[in-house]
Nucleic acid binder design. Sequence first.
DNA 1: ATGAAAGCGCTAACAG
DNA 2: CTGTTAGCGCTTTCAT
Lengths: 335, 335
Amino acid sequence: MVKITDVARHAGVSPSTVSYTLSGKRPISAETRARVEASIRELGYRPHAGARALASNKSNVLAMVVPLRAGINVPVVMQFAVSVMTTAREYDHDVLVLTQEEGEKGLRRVADTALVDALIVMDVQLHDPRLPLLRALDRPSVLIGFPADPAGLTCIDLDFKAAGELCVEHLAGLGHRVIGLIGSPPEVYVRQTAFAQRVVQGFTAAAARHGMSSTVHPCEATPAAARTVAERLLREQPALTGVVIHNEAILEPLIDAFEHLGLRVPTDLSLTALCPDDQAETLPVPVTSIAIPSREVGEQAVQLLMSKLDNTPVPSATLLRPSLTARASTAPRAV
Amino acid sequence: MVKITDVARHAGVSPSTVSYTLSGKRPISAETRARVEASIRELGYRPHAGARALASNKSNVLAMVVPLRAGINVPVVMQFAVSVMTTAREYDHDVLVLTQEEGEKGLRRVADTALVDALIVMDVQLHDPRLPLLRALDRPSVLIGFPADPAGLTCIDLDFKAAGELCVEHLAGLGHRVIGLIGSPPEVYVRQTAFAQRVVQGFTAAAARHGMSSTVHPCEATPAAARTVAERLLREQPALTGVVIHNEAILEPLIDAFEHLGLRVPTDLSLTALCPDDQAETLPVPVTSIAIPSREVGEQAVQLLMSKLDNTPVPSATLLRPSLTARASTAPRAV
DNA sequence: ATGAAAGCGCTAACAG
DNA sequence: CTGTTAGCGCTTTCAT
């Protein structure tokens, strides 16, 4: 293994000069830099991560907890995860993953052993058991999602309440009076997953404000469940003309289900969804939707973390404004 | 931060005794051990990961490359990933993730800096560009999947060729003579993803052997594509009575599509799939299937890696025998 | 069964 | 702008 002293000798400089050349933490003359870089390349030098971590007290590794459990939409979660990983690399960090099941023990372990410098936690519940730990830990963390009490934490997410409202307002503006929300799987609400709850809040509040008749239906992520919910919705609200869907996995099956029940989209029924843009665009009927900005959220989560590692103050709450893209699935109510 | 010398002082022993108590690498008297463990607990001692890695030349971290790109089934990939993470923890290792895009650079980086002790690579292509690197690296690796030339590598996977054959044989045994394979998205074959290719090989070879008429159709993972493929299949092979599906994401849409085309399952059409068991079981018509043993594969991949880290010799190839579970979607051909 | 002490490879004062 | 050197916290010989 080639080490920093080898490079130093080869370049005719001291080890610290090699170190500073690499880190840029002090000025190095152009010639020296060139010589050092040449030696590094020539010898194929790679600094030892453990030695670095020990000497600098920084591992350049972030921990990320990926929620992979019942009811969550794995592809969407992985969009966040990929964005986090990609952005972390831009800041010269790697990402260590923890499963949800590792829970607080896992977080504590990687933080206390200095395996990671900072932590990113997704799938936050309103009363998440990990919050006290995250507040107490000596390492910074960022939550993707808002718990009931975010005091002392740094959180970022799409403003899901506003998103729920925005969907309703779009439908209201088109003249719809009777609407329904088809939500995520029941487990998600049972666990009080923050973002799902907030969509319901926004949806319900906006519907009330507009004097609309509304109902909410959680729904398993299977085509069969989609059919069942569609039927039930029409049975309970025969005058239904607007639907908000917050369940990416069964968007297409739901549309199919409504059409098989004799409702044309958007002629008889206007649909709007919360889902990734690429999905909304590529459906047979492009769906009016509020994008889930996983790209931005993951990116900003890492940036927040980097600021905290730099001791740069960061906003405690970052709520991304939802933006609705009107597509072919919504239209004025037929009169 | 509490360090090993603090624990040593508190317990009235030397640092090396604390270290050996933790590692078990030399005998410690019961009393000493008890005293040390008490001190560790009392002081809340956690060994510093970087210091350990430097001194022992082991990071206790594995790298895992997760394939998240066009055409791959994210939930299935994550089943492997979770199994790897869970098993790694049982062996006291953590898992660092790399995206596919990091490619060889990423593998080289984490290996050369001693950030990780070993590597797991998924989504192997027949002529995978990473193979030379993996062969050359000074750290052990395990591939989940078989490249065209596995020489010098350690590979594990379900025997997908045998799986393809087994599906055909099951249908042949039921008297079917005209069959089709609905496969993964086209990109997967274009990239020459090993497992997908092997299913096709097994399917085609077995069909020929049994004198059956057969066709193969890649299919995008969308319900619309499912409908298109179903129609095409019936147009091209009107006498079709058996179908093998190797595309977990559109299993249910495909069944729907065939039923809407007037074919009852299994009365008119027998279906067999390669997919996770839980999915096969919970469909409206439980589907005869060969399980994708992600649990076992991930677990054994880690175990192979642990053996290699121990310098215990391991088999270069581990092919898991497929096993078919007959369910309600297959029946003897109507006469 | 335990201790003493020499590193592991790097960073960051400190010194010039 | 560069060199010298003292650790970082742990593991592991080498002693006893």
